[in-house]
């Protein structure tokens, strides 16, 4: 189903994505903490929220874990779908 050329193109795309990631890290200002731009925009408004979230993760680690959970759930579903499509095509 996938030719050698397809695989090389796929690998090149993965390398390019990793390159963008590493390039961003390399070009960022020294000592950058990579805080979320959403939070930065919130601070820029100078506004005070009139309502707090119903649920707030207790720590940054828990928040990161929940984001990882979301990515994991999506990854499992995406992997399942791509696996089904591949298996169907082969059969």
């Amino acid at each position: 189903m996938f030719s050698r050329r397809d695989i090389w193109i796929g690998l090149a795309l993965v390398v390019a994505i990793v390159g963008v990631y590493l390039g961003s890290l390399a070009l960022a200002p020294t000592g950058a903490e990579f805080l979320g731009s959403d939070a930065a925009a919130g601070e820029l408004t100078g506004g005070v929220p009139w309502l707090e979230p119903l649920f707030r993760p207790g720590s940054p680690e828990l928040e990161s874990g929940l984001f990882a959970l979301q990515a994991g759930l999506g990854g499992i579903l995406l992997g399942f779908v791509l696996g089904r499509l591949t298996a169907r095509r082969r059969s």
Partner: peptide, 18 residues
């Protein structure tokens, strides 16, 4: 699923934020 995955990925940017 693709939207669920990538919208959970906080990536660094050249401005020093993510």
């Amino acid at each position: 699923a693709f939207t669920l995955v990538v919208s959970a990925l906080k990536l660094p940017s050249i401005t020093g934020s993510s």
